[in-house]
Nucleic acid binder design. Sequence first.
DNA 1: TATGAATGAGCCTTCATTCAT
DNA 2: GATGAATGAAGGCTCATTCAT
Lengths: 202, 202, 202, 202
Amino acid sequence: MPRTSEQNREIRERTKETIIKAGLSVFARKGFYGATIAEVAKEAGISKGLIYNYFDAKKDLAKAILQQVVVLMAGFETAFKETKDPYEIIEKLLKETFNTIRENTEFWRLYVSFALQPEIIEEAKTVFSEVIDNYILMIEKVFRKIKIPNAKIEAYEFGALLDGVGIDYLFGKDNYPLERIEKHLLKKYGKKALRERAKAKL
Amino acid sequence: MPRTSEQNREIRERTKETIIKAGLSVFARKGFYGATIAEVAKEAGISKGLIYNYFDAKKDLAKAILQQVVVLMAGFETAFKETKDPYEIIEKLLKETFNTIRENTEFWRLYVSFALQPEIIEEAKTVFSEVIDNYILMIEKVFRKIKIPNAKIEAYEFGALLDGVGIDYLFGKDNYPLERIEKHLLKKYGKKALRERAKAKL
Amino acid sequence: MPRTSEQNREIRERTKETIIKAGLSVFARKGFYGATIAEVAKEAGISKGLIYNYFDAKKDLAKAILQQVVVLMAGFETAFKETKDPYEIIEKLLKETFNTIRENTEFWRLYVSFALQPEIIEEAKTVFSEVIDNYILMIEKVFRKIKIPNAKIEAYEFGALLDGVGIDYLFGKDNYPLERIEKHLLKKYGKKALRERAKAKL
Amino acid sequence: MPRTSEQNREIRERTKETIIKAGLSVFARKGFYGATIAEVAKEAGISKGLIYNYFDAKKDLAKAILQQVVVLMAGFETAFKETKDPYEIIEKLLKETFNTIRENTEFWRLYVSFALQPEIIEEAKTVFSEVIDNYILMIEKVFRKIKIPNAKIEAYEFGALLDGVGIDYLFGKDNYPLERIEKHLLKKYGKKALRERAKAKL
DNA sequence: TATGAATGAGCCTTCATTCAT
DNA sequence: GATGAATGAAGGCTCATTCAT
């Protein structure tokens, strides 16, 4: 008895998911060139050939993974849309970012890798630009709400700061004082400090 | 009549230089895996084989390029050793960094690439860690001199900030408000602002 | 519908066989360095890449061929384990060896090549040493059984003699009086002659 | 002042000698394919280029080396032309051969290598055939003189025996009972034994 | 849908050979 | 005659991709 098309759809979806997940893992660990279709297949527990049933080429798998990364990052942002208190948003954002840096280091690396090698996936740059822009925009709004002067540029600074911490941590993982920096920034961008900065301008 | 060994030394030096320069360019554009020895040779205007007369393997060329990058960065630092006024150091440092980001974008990219792929060159991580550590240390001293509280962690923040700006600029080059951020930071880390921060602590 | 693993096993076995056979032929004709993976592939009627689906490196193919040679030689020996009459064993051994020299000349050449170039396959020396040792040991036993004095050293002589004939035949194939030497040795190591030698000692 | 053509001739001769000597050494150690022109040059203490001033190609150097080997072997033979006593000739021959096997192992290997890979030097086979033929012929004469029956075929056997010992020694150097075999053969081909064999036939 | 054997283009590397000096 | 920098052909090996089943 052949499968119904509904069953097939489900299978396809599940398999695709599996492949992307495996790809995410392998790509993050090895980078685009270092990763092998064979290894992705192995990690996914399927055959090499099957991957080509779902993706036309290695690059297309990378594209799908990129999308996944974007989705994850988007989810990361929207998580704060419900939070009302702007100070709380910032605090959560900081904590969440530091957690990501700490725990999903490889994931971070993938994110940077993609962005650094636009020759692999043209879309990468555009896609990430958007993500970053949104991120910055969100921060900007928050800053604006709490009357931080120069909100826009301060938002850029905030974003760069976190990206920079992430990068520097990647470089010198073992000795990087990630915790201390986190505390430092939590204070610097804490309610009290931000309020003072807002006042100072007046 | 054979060439004198002096002549040969010169030739070798020049050719090596040529290769490294070409390598720097190609590696920066394509990344280690994306770059091809053939392309490096073409860019250098020499034969593939000749490269192996100077470097044992692709990795060794990468290593040499890495060294070059380090030398440049080291020169970058020492440039400020003569400057006495701490406020001036910071100003110069900022301006210089922004110039590098703006003009040597590809160079920047290579720097990050290397650091992100320690599988390629083991030394990369160590080497960059040291460079960064020195950089941070220098800033820390300056901050300490002008009584910025938390000098060490502030130095880390400063370094991360600049790295982050560099990265974000790489991501979204065309729309990134590099100039405005530069101005912003020049103010934020300007004499006046820093003095206030020093006082504030008291 | 994918092939059953049984089918795959069969395919792999057959292909591997094909490759080894082609390798044996090409290696014997050209030697390890002279032989080309491309040529082996061509001789096997497959693509270059496929060889690496079965062997990690050229050396490993050589190793497999070496094993094949060893298997053949081992089979060669065991063939006489059933024969009881020691004189018959020697006669058969001689005839068999001369047949091999005559008909499997290339095979012989490969055998010697491998043994002469242990840089290529470390195991070669060990492996062949064992084969030879066994061979000598077998002869020694036979000699001992028929009371030939100095059985051990005579066995070494016997082995050297046959190896030497093989080599000399390789050198000067066309003019080498292989048949006459065979007859000569059949007589010299024939029942009658050996019995006399045994008696002589008394 | 330019060199006289006589001086030049001398220089050329000496240099050629040096190259061949170095080549002999390197080829013996590494085999034809394993040896490198660069290494030969280094061993000779000259430049790569200079070799091509004396030999058109690697093969031609090999050919010259081959000739050298032949000369050495020929000298080996002629050394006995003066000896009158046939028994002494055989004894000397045996001792000399075993010495060569023992001390000039690498040289032996080269000899065999050349003979085994006629695709490298076509002449090798012819040349060695001649050498061997002469060798055999000489033995044959000696055997004939002392009335050994079947002198010709016995000579072939004698030659094969020595070649075989050489090969087997190459295979299993460390454990091969070279000394004992030497003694054994010295007895077997000693005056007393040979005389008996001569008588036996009558 | 799924498998993995098979293909072949492409890349790194070696090294005999050439050539400017 | 001598040097060694430079060339380029060739070969080993990898791996994305195809295809028969």
